[in-house]
Write a protein that binds this DNA or RNA. Structure first.
Lengths: 298, 298
DNA sequence: TCACTCCTGAAAGATATTTTCGGGGCGGGG
DNA sequence: CCCCGCCCCGAAAATATCTTTCAGGAGTGA
């Protein structure tokens, strides 16, 4: 039987604690015990059934239901839902501790939260700081490129590989180099219409600057992805894409956030190029997907 | 066979939307309808009984309960409580997620904004969905490991390298393998106290599963980082770390968000291990920083 | 086409919630 | 001081809701 709830009063979301105080005087003793338990530990009581809450407060199911009614809910079931909501709010509300640095004795849950938060922050900063004009120019150069070479070492080397992998999948000729000698050797062979990209957080990684310089001097279009646009690498870059830098700490090396930032830039480049060369990129993407399908079992 | 969902899986409050996306592929059609309704309108569905939700989605009560179970709750009742919590958070919290797909003719500024937003979302989902118990177990195994081998191909291969690089910097013996044959060859040499990690978004990449299986059978501790905890790879994993999956589109291949998610997990592992082995990790970090300093010019 | 597996929903079974109903405490009047 | 009546209270019945079982049936591979 569906009992239509009388008064137009919709259940209270967060005002529950207040309501308890307001109505407490008009409650009987046992109902007060129930209300008290509910207001004192929303999360805990939300996990209990009527019977459970009745036992906890030393009362009966009937009293629990009566209390729920008095608080403005159609029944205990609805009070319980409201409690769950309240608990969730309280839970999410007390999370501002994540702005702190990661400490040696932080529990893992905190580590996860802090890392996620920091990386989100890095992404926001990068997106805000990215010069879309420079990005557009870089995309244009890539889309028209005959061949693309990407230079990066260590953590940035992985980003370089990521970019090369992506460009390959949309039919571009792209390679990543992390061996500085081979990179220079490779750079010597570049000409106009070729594009060279250097990725370095510090902007002063010699092993990466050198091949970019060589490419630059041989007439290739050069792009730098760096966290220090005033760094040495910029001297040889036609287009400069700036990544953001987050504060680092002992347990959170700079490589972590710079990588996140660099990857976002790389993704933007990739999508930009894919848009510009959609006619060829789309089939290439589909084809590479198809070709790999049989490598997955079951 | 590793139990994927049983035991230590605590119900997820905010991770629900992410969990739906993660598990959707392994759901049957009717269960997907239920999951979709739940993820699409938490507040609305929280107000419904099993029967109501079954009718709304055109399925049966049994299917609704099955879906709740699959999502990690003991039954529908608990799913409903979680939904109420989620609804409350959305209500009080930030604006609803309005993620438009990236279109071919989006201006670059939009591309940047959308990509950044999507990746932030992915990070939040991953953090919310990460099982800290599993993470803790994985960290423990790594901290005590004599030797660590990481397997991954293509995009996941880069993540594997990233993890290996990081572990090396805190004095662990770690290597990444992307050549499947060499990986298997390597896996054969593993023993107890060694740790093998497989990284695969699909959970069914044969080239990565095979070395993990070999390592598993040779007594090494095995860890899987995957977006499909129900995938084949989990059979050979002692610990399973789940990455989140964002919906993908033509211009935004799955590799993009899965990589972001995987990297967060890797970072968490790294920091966790660094904490546990702080005595040796801190000097190692400092030393590697020092050793690279002269490679930066000016 | 057939056998097989696995999804699916109807209905039985188990729990949880709500309602009913009578016992009993407490205060006021006799 | 005792009796009466009011109303709070909880036990248990009644109802709603959730869970499990079971068998039909769709889809799939041989």
């Amino acid at each position: 039987m569906k009992e239509v709830f009388a008064g137009g009063a919709p259940p209270a979301p967060a005002a529950l604690a207040a309501k308890v105080r307001t109505l407490a005087p008009s409650m009987t003793r046992s109902m007060q015990r129930v209300a008290e338990a509910v207001a004192g530990d929303p999360a805990g009581t939300a996990a209990l059934t009527v019977t459970g809450l009745a036992e906890l407060t030393g009362t009966s199911e009937a009293t629990v239901v009566r209390t729920a009614r008095l608080l403005g809910y159609p029944g205990y079931r609805d009070l319980r839902l409201a409690l769950a909501g309240l608990a969730a709010q309280q839970q999410s509300g007390r999370a501002p501790a994540v702005t702190a640095d990661i400490a040696v004795d932080d529990p893992l849950a905190d580590v996860v939260a802090k890392l996620a938060y920091d990386e989100q922050q890095t992404l926001a900063d990068t997106a805000a700081g990215l010069d879309t004009v420079q990005l557009g120019a870089a995309v244009g150069a890539l889309a028209a490129a005959r061949r693309v070479e990407v230079y990066g070492v260590a953590a940035s080397g992985l980003v370089a590989q990521d970019l090369a992998q992506k460009l390959l999948r949309i039919g571009q000729i792209a390679h990543a180099h992390s061996d500085p000698h081979l990179a220079v050797t490779n750079a010597v062979t570049l000409r106009a219409k070729d594009v060279a990209i250097a990725i370095t957080h510090s902007g002063s990684t010699g092993d990466v600057i050198e091949p970019l310089r060589v490419a630059f001097e041989h007439g290739a279009t050069t792009i730098a992805i760096t966290g220090r646009p005033d760094g040495l690498v910029s001297q040889y870059a036609d287009h400069i894409l700036t990544t953001s830098t987050a504060r680092e700490s002992e347990l959170r090396p700079a490589a972590m956030s710079s990588r996140t930032s660099q990857l976002l830039v790389v993704d933007c480049l990739f999508v930009g190029v894919a848009q510009r060369t959609y006619e060829t990129a789309a089939p290439a993407l589909a084809a590479s997907y198809e070709a790999l399908a049989h490598r997955h079992r079951r």
